[in-house]
Design a protein around this nucleic acid. Structure first.
Lengths: 165, 165
DNA sequence: GATGGATAGATGACATGTCAATAACTATGA
DNA sequence: TCATAGTTATTGACATGTCATCTATCCATC
């Protein structure tokens, strides 16, 4: 799939992105697991809950915010609930709804894991880049995210809702 | 995990990267599956094999090239072998070794899938960016990849070998 | 040429994600 | 107000990835 499809600059960017992805995800997941009992998925759920003033999110809202499918989130929550990191509650306004609540152990877990995780994010990514690069990276992400979000909302095929993390 | 750990520029870059990752991986996987019976993992393995002049790779070499763990590749190959996309062969020089070979159906599959996949890559990412952005993205990827590769080789803990794709 | 440690791959158990189907509600309009 | 359509969340079956372990083989050295 070499230079018949992408020119040199494009190919370097694309292959670079793929490789960065592979290595960085793996490394962050590994580092996180080393000093915290948490997977990246656990971490993301917990940190989103911790950021909410009332430490809780409606399932659908959290899925939307994280760009996860509801199914994925539901499975994840089931597993985390088993470990006592979160709890489910009913919603008054809507009998179908469910709310995920951060538990004390969950809060402790995310609080304990965050410093190390953010240090890893710095060490393996952020601190390697200068301000200009960070800005461009932000621009690039915005461009792609806006595009995909728009595509998603409009007609267009399939996508039930995102995936990887 | 907001602005206590990262400044505004850093946070925008980091959150943007996470979101891009989630949306783009999901979209590409979905688009690919739509018109090809192939997962992203299948695609990557097939395209790496197709790029080799003799359409074959030593398992360890392919794992190294793709930055996958041997275990992951072994499982993947087992599944793909079942579907007839690749085949395993013995290595003469080394009785422990194994070689993965691209089969005719495998070649047909990757040939059929590539145009659509690369079009998706363009549509959802490459064509959204200008040359400068592509260059910076390449630089960013190099910086992170070089760092992670170096860390991996040197002392440092854990990492058995990468993961996500 | 036997022995002990390294290497290459495969495999089982288990965590995670996807899709499709289902259940339980809510909302709408005849 | 009741049938129907849409929403919300859960679930089961199955694909995929991880880690730890096992087997076979290689190789350095005694």
């Amino acid at each position: 799939m070499t230079s018949r499809w992408l020119d040199a600059t494009e190919e370097r960017a694309w292959r670079g992105y793929r490789r960065l992805l592979t290595l960085l995800e793996s490394r962050l997941a590994h580092d996180l697991a080393e000093d915290s009992e948490l997977s990246m998925a656990d971490y993301t759920v917990l940190s989103n809950l911790a950021e909410a003033e009332d430490r809780r999110w409606r399932v659908s809202g959290l899925a939307e915010r994280m760009q996860w499918s509801q199914s994925r989130l539901s499975h994840q929550i089931t597993r985390m609930e088993r470990r006592g990191l979160v709890a489910r509650e009913q919603v008054d306004e809507d009998g179908r709804g469910a709310v995920v609540v951060l538990t004390k152990p969950g809060l402790r877990a995310i609080a304990a894991a965050t410093p190390g995780h953010m240090a890893a994010v710095r060490k393996h990514m952020i601190d390697l880049l200068d301000p200009d690069q960070l800005k461009v990276l932000g621009d690039v992400a915005d461009a792609v995210v806006d595009h995909l979000t728009a595509v998603e909302d409009s007609s267009e095929g399939g996508r039930q809702t995102p995936s990887t993390d």
